[in-house]
Amino acid sequence: MIRAVLIDDESSCREALSLLLKEFCPQVELLGMAGSLPEGINLIREKKPELVFLDVELKNHLGFKLFESFPNANFHVVFCTAHEKYALQAIKTSCLEYLLKPIDPVELMNAVDKFKRTVNRELNQKKVDVLLENAGNASQVLNKIAVPTSDGYFFINTSDILYFEGDGKYTNMFTNKGDKIVSSKNLGEFEELLSHQNFFRCHKSWLINLNYIKKYMRGDGQVIMSNDKLVDVSIRKKEEFLKLFDRA
């Protein structure tokens, strides 16, 4: 049995999730439910669960604050969220699990399955660090992201990324230290994560960090990155691309 608790400020949401767990995930033993963050902290201390379902926006608090009380959390968290755009962004960058409300039973089962398969405390802690770094930042600038690779996760500062190159289902990431990292996420997902972070999708298969552009060649519609890599700018993106620099 997986020992779990859930924290949500809306009674109807607590009810819905507990019923879903009973119906679809009988291997989860729900030890208790809490309606606010302080209650939730007490509940975790008391019951010592392995898994916590946590609403992102609790009454008057962001759910992330839970980690302040448990700096070395020995439980895993699955976030539940209705529509917190920026909080969701932070969760996505950290590669922690999340469920969208109303909760889809299939996704719930997947999340529980995944928890059963991979219980790695150290990795979880790293993900939480990324989450807190990004979520604590009021300016909505992502400092760090977790990049899923074939054999785990790669944690990197966004300011260290030169560009991404799409390669079908995979993405090659190039860093300013000369590393090349192959990720199992596709380029579109990275674009969604980073489009507000000074990254620009200049081509079907390129997502570049605007801070690392060395030169734009008007004639060929190409940019030279700081490592002298030539990157194409597609004709459709050209105007948008140039506008980014007109403001400056």
Binding site: E10, S12, C13, E15, A16, L19, L20, E23, E57, A82, H83, E84, L100, K101, P102, I103
Partner: peptide, 19 residues
């Protein structure tokens, strides 16, 4: 409407159905 409200409302409906 606040989308947050809509999704939470739908969650309540879900719980009524489950119950």
């Amino acid at each position: 409407m606040n989308p947050h409200f809509i999704f939470n409302a739908l969650t309540s409906l879900q719980s009524f159905v489950l119950k």
